[in-house]
Design a protein around this nucleic acid. Structure first.
Lengths: 196, 196
DNA sequence: CCCATAAGTCATCGAACGCTGACTTGCCCG
DNA sequence: CGGGCAAGTCAGCGTTCGATGACTTATGGG
C-alpha cells in the first residue's frame, strides 16, 4: 500500500464529507472542514471532485440504497416493523447518527437534494409498502406510512422529543402494529419474530 | 404615518427575514438578502436587532404559536383532523409556503433551532394530544401522532411525494380517522363537521 | 540510479460574509 | 427659523468562502 494513495484519499474525503454534510448541511459545511477531517489538503477536493457541489452530489448519490440488508427478507406482515428498525435503530454513524434522509433535510433548500430525497423515499419505502396496501389508493396509504417513519426519525434524532428519544424498538412495537394495520388495511406485526 | 417609521421598517425586516430563513435556512441567508427584500439598508439589521443571530431568534421566537385560531375549538374527536389541516393546508405564505417547523428543520444544525422546535412540538402538539390518549404511555402515543403530522408536512411540501402532494384534506380524512383512532385508543373523526 | 509522472502542498485570488463607526438626512419641538 | 435627535446611508473592517495555478515530493519503470 503506497503512502500516496489516490483512491484511499478520495475515499477519506468522501467519508468526511458524508459526515459533515449530514451533521451540518451543505451550506454550513466548508471544504476546509471536510479536508481537515480527512487529514488532507483542501485543494484535493477540487482535484478529485471538481467542486464542492459535485462532491455533495457524489456523497448523496450512493445513499445506502435504502436499507441494505434484510429489508425485504422475512414475512410481509413484519415489513413495517423492519423498516422502522432500519430507519430509527440502525447504526447510522456514517451519517452523523441520523438517517441519511433526515440529514439531507438540512440541505433541502437545494433542489437536487429534494429530488434525491423524493427518489429515495419513493423507491425504497413507498414502492415496498404499496404492494401491502389493500383497498383504494395504495399509493397514498404507502406514502402516509412512509411519512410516519420519516416523522419518527425526525422527532427522535433532530427534535429529540422526550418520550420518543428514550423509546426502544419494543416500546414502539404495539403502536407500529396498530398504525400499520390501520393504514394498510390488513393485520401487521410490530415485532420481528427474530426477537426474543 | 411618517416616512421614516422605525416600527414599520423593523416589521418589514422581520417579515423578509421570516421568508428567507424559512425558504433557504439560516446559513444560506445573508443579511444583505433580507435587507434587499425589505428595501432597506443591511446595516439597519444590526441597528435594530444587534446581530443576524438575534434577528433569527426573534423571527423564530414568535412562531404562530402553533396554530393560532380554532385549534382547541370544536369536538375532541376531531382535534387531529383540525391539526392536520392546520399543519398541512394552512396558508403559510409568510413562511415560504411551508410550515414553520418544516422551515426550521433547514436550520436544525444550530442547537437553538432544535430547542425551539422541541418546545414548539411539545407545547403545541404533544400537550394537546396527550390528554386524548387512552391506555398506557399517552406521551409516547401523542408524540407518535405528532411525528405523523410532521412527516406528512415534510413529504408534502419538501419531498413532494406524488400522491401526498396532490392529495386534498378530504382524501386524507379516512386515514386520519384510522390512524388517530388506532394510536389514541379511542374513536376519532377524520373530517371537521364544519365541512359539507 | 534517474527521471517522468502523479500525489500532495502552498500562496493566494476575488467575492462574499457579518459587523462597526462615522457620516448624512429628515422630522419634531421650542 | 433652528437646534437636537432619531432614521437611514456609506465605506470599510477583518474574516472566511470556493476555487486556481505554480510548486514540491514521492513512486515506480527503464
Amino acid at each position: 500500500m503506497p503512502k500516496r494513495d489516490r483512491e484511499a484519499t478520495r475515499a477519506r474525503l468522501l467519508e468526511a464529507a458524508r459526515l459533515r454534510f449530514a451533521r451540518e448541511g451543505y451550506d454550513a459545511t466548508s471544504v476546509r472542514d471536510i479536508a481537515g477531517d480527512a487529514g488532507v489538503d483542501a485543494t484535493l477536493i477540487f482535484r478529485y471532485f471538481g467542486s464542492k457541489k459535485r462532491l455533495f452530489d457524489e456523497v448523496t448519490a450512493d445513499l445506502p440504497a435504502g436499507l441494505p440488508d434484510g429489508l425485504p427478507d422475512g414475512p410481509e406482515e413484519e415489513l413495517v416493523a423492519r423498516m422502522l428498525r432500519a430507519v430509527v435503530f440502525h447504526d447510522w454513524t456514517r451519517y452523523g447518527g441520523e438517517h441519511p434522509l433526515v440529514a439531507m433535510l438540512r440541505s433541502s433548500a437545494h433542489d437536487d437534494a429534494r429530488q434525491r430525497m423524493r427518489q429515495e423515499v419513493c423507491d425504497t419505502y413507498v414502492d415496498a409498502l404499496r404492494d401491502l396496501a389493500e383497498g383504494d389508493g395504495p399509493e397514498l396509504r404507502a406514502e402516509l406510512l412512509s411519512a410516519w417513519l420519516v416523522g419518527i426519525g425526525i422527532l427522535r434524532s433532530v427534535v429529540a422529543t422526550p418520550a420518543l428519544a428514550g423509546a426502544s424498538a419494543d416500546d414502539l412495537a404495539p403502536h407500529v402494529e396498530a398504525v400499520a394495520s390501520a393504514l394498510l388495511g390488513r393485520p401487521m406485526r410490530g415485532t420481528p419474530s427474530s426477537e426474543g
